[in-house]
Design a protein around this nucleic acid. Structure first.
Lengths: 199, 199
DNA sequence: GCTTGAAATGAACCCTTGTTCAGTTTACCG
DNA sequence: CGGTAAACTGAACAAGGGTTCATTTCAAGC
């Protein structure tokens, strides 16, 4: 039988993913070598291949899992009937989720170009599904006359860019607290689409 | 004397920068080799070193020049007394400038991590100056009571992220024209800070 | 305690990297 | 037309890349 206590496989596997995520985010996928990852994990480079078929899969799996987690968390939210409330909830959710995972977010948005076509298509489809969720909210708000939007697709991308930008500067323990930041971004999002902030 | 007509140096130099810009934007600095650049220019790798001391300088110069151009263009704008007008002008300017140079923009925002500390400091200072220009507009609008902003620094970064996001999707000849896009972004920016769109 | 097999080593594989440089080409100047 | 210097080649360098694999380690189960 497989070993249990004392076995390292259940520790090394996740550690590789964690280290790779941090290094990829910090220096970029192409700039990080398998030997660097191995060194930080405390293992030889060859050992990495017990946990991943190759470097590319390490990246692709990481991105896919991040986006699947994001979509799953989004699906767990209630669906408020009021579009303004739905948008405020989305904005808070998005900022909060991204603030807590800056490395994964950065990689998912920046390393798309380093994916082979097959992996790229998978990841892009997931991202598209997420954007569609926001666009549906905007569409409904516009149909109900509470949002004023010349173009919902453009607004979707503009809002996501604005909200995701939080990862560029937010640091835990900084000048602004997390709750505060969520509120400000949600307000800006609501105002940007022509709805008053939720009180 | 130096040759003039027939000399390639005044052609090869700019071509190297142009090719490098496109490749860095497409694949990332670390993923592009000097041999790839040379091949696209139609020259041997060694010849690149007649025009740049090393690969790192190629990147750093590119980023510095982009940001200097951005700041110079910004400085050429008039300074409208009305904050809302100033913000609308800034938004239009930012989107327009970025739409026309997607590769340079992408590199300036994404390859910061690949700069050596000395180059990084220079580039970061330029970017900071640009952000400060927008923050000054927001600050003045808030002081005059026409913008409602809990935090001007956060708003600055949120707006820049939103506006810069245009490079993620805008393509010349697409569904929306450039003028149209400028207008929509400017409106969203104004609304986001609590000012009505300029008419 | 001995066997077993998963976990990890460490050396090797071949390829590509950034960079250098002695030598060749080329087109202008005098 | 010959000399000159700029522009470029092409081969070499040492270092590091991703990946493989025969071998060693060692805790778990009998």
């Amino acid at each position: 039988m497989a070993r249990k206590t004392g076995s390292h496989s259940e520790i090394t596997g996740p550690r590789i993913r964690a280290v790779a995520e941090r290094l990829f985010a910090r220096h970029g996928y192409a700039a990080v070598s398998m030997r660097q990852i191995a060194a930080e994990v405390g293992v030889q480079a060859g050992a990495l291949y017990l946990y991943t078929p190759d470097k590319q899969s390490l990246l692709a799996d990481m991105m896919r899992e991040h986006l699947e987690g994001l979509l799953a968390a989004l699906a767990d939210l209630p669906a408020p009937p009021d579009p303004a409330e739905a948008l405020a909830q989305f904005a808070r959710f998005h900022v909060d989720y991204h603030i807590l995972r800056p490395d994964a977010v950065f990689i998912a948005y920046m390393e798309l170009r380093n994916l082979e076509p097959a992996h790229f298509a998978q990841v892009e489809a997931l991202r598209r599904r997420y954007e569609d969720a926001l666009e549906a909210i905007l569409q409904r708000g516009r149909d109900m006359g509470v949002f004023s939007l010349p173009d919902t697709k453009l607004a979707t991308l503009a809002l996501i860019a604005m909200l995701t930008g939080v990862t560029n500067w937010y640091r835990e323990g900084g000048r602004l607290g997390r709750a505060e930041v969520l509120g400000i971004y949600a307000d800006m999002a609501l105002k940007a689409v022509g709805a008053g902030p939720k009180r």
